[in-house]
Amino acid sequence: MIRKLTDHDHEQVLAFLSEEQSINLFIIGDIEAFGYSSETQELWAEFDESDTINAILLRFHQSFIPYAKGEFDTNGFASIMKEYSQPILLSGSSDIVEKFETLDDLQLGKKQVTYFAECRTNEFLSLDNVEYKKATIEDVDQIVKLRETIDEFHVRSDARDILKQTMESNASRTYFTEENGIVTSCVSTTAENSMSAMIVGVCTRKEYRKKGLATSIMQHVVQDVLNEGKTLCLFYDNPEAGRIYKRLGFKEIGMWTMHR
């Protein structure tokens, strides 16, 4: 049986998700930030005969993330997603997402597969004295404008609204460098929750590259988040970026697929 989740399910939901807290940081973070009754998100779960959760589906704005530990009602979740606009924006652990890719009547967005890595130690960090700032709401437009200049980035039309909302709910932070009032490099977190945080938006304006700005900022972000007792996670598909992340202490724990 699939039904929509409410506050009354929270304890069981968190116990189910926490067994793989890094993989589920988006779902956990959105629940902690926005709960079960927000206009921007909804959650459903499949329950077995003993009322135990088998799988969970999150809708955040127009994006969906499924999670399961075994077989689940793929068609049931697909029916929910099809009630919203297509193509469907779907992401999650690759072995789970691929179950939806076989459904002929489900129109998915463009596919991207990335490595999923996590960091639990600061022993490989080498902090420097780069001058950086922590972004406020007033900096959102500049941060999004920088991201829009990065060829590899897919910046959604609602990126400003999402960044502002996550910053206001303390689910995101951004550190950046600037010169003459222009943001030159930045690193963000997203889906921050009580257990983990995801590194995203690592980028540098083209004319300021090869100076180590993003790496310097990122080390400060990693140190600050680890100091709060959280695990850091990130995606990457660029081997050069992967080598940098591994030198900072990140280790691969799986693959992550996005249809955007």
Rank of each mutant, 00 (worst) to 15 (best):
T52L: 14
D73F: 07
A33Y: 10
D95M: 06
L90I: 10
E101N: 01
I80F: 04
T74D: 06
Q41S: 14
E98V: 06
L89V: 08
T102Y: 06
A78Y: 10
G70E: 09
E49T: 10
D51S: 15
F64Y: 12
Q62S: 15
E101H: 00
R59D: 13
L58G: 10
M81N: 00
A68M: 03
D73N: 13
S93I: 07
E101L: 05
S85A: 12
L43C: 12
D48C: 04
S93W: 03
R59F: 14
Y84N: 11
D30A: 09
D51L: 15
T74R: 04
G70H: 04
I28A: 11
D51H: 14
M81K: 02
T52Q: 15
P87D: 05
G76L: 05
A68G: 03
L58H: 15
Y36I: 05
P66D: 09
G70M: 02
G92F: 06
M81H: 05
D95S: 07
S63Y: 04
Y36G: 03
N54D: 13
M81R: 01
A55K: 01
F77R: 00
S93H: 05
S79H: 14
G70D: 08
E83W: 01
E42P: 06
I80S: 03
S94W: 04
L57H: 12
I80N: 07
T52W: 07
N75S: 13
I96T: 06
T102D: 11
G76Y: 02
D73Y: 08
I88T: 14
A45Y: 04
I88C: 09
L57F: 13
P87W: 03
M81T: 04
F34G: 03
E101C: 07
A33R: 12
E98R: 07
M81I: 04
H61R: 14
L43F: 15
Y67S: 13
W44D: 02
I31H: 11
G76K: 05
I96S: 02
S63F: 09
L90T: 07
I53E: 05
D95L: 06
D51Y: 12
L57A: 12
P87R: 01
G29A: 13
P87Q: 02
E98P: 00
P87H: 04
F34E: 09
T102V: 11
W44Q: 01
I56A: 08
S93A: 09
I96V: 12
Y67K: 12
E83C: 11
W44S: 08
D48W: 03
F34T: 06
F100E: 03
P87S: 04
G92Q: 05
G92V: 05
S85R: 09
F100R: 03
A55M: 02
D104Q: 10
D30W: 07
K69P: 02
A33H: 09
I88V: 14
S37Q: 15
A45Q: 04
W44E: 09
E42H: 13
Q41W: 01
E39A: 15
F100Y: 09
A33S: 15
N54T: 10
R59G: 12
Q41L: 14
A55G: 02
D48R: 01
E101S: 05
K69T: 13
S91F: 04
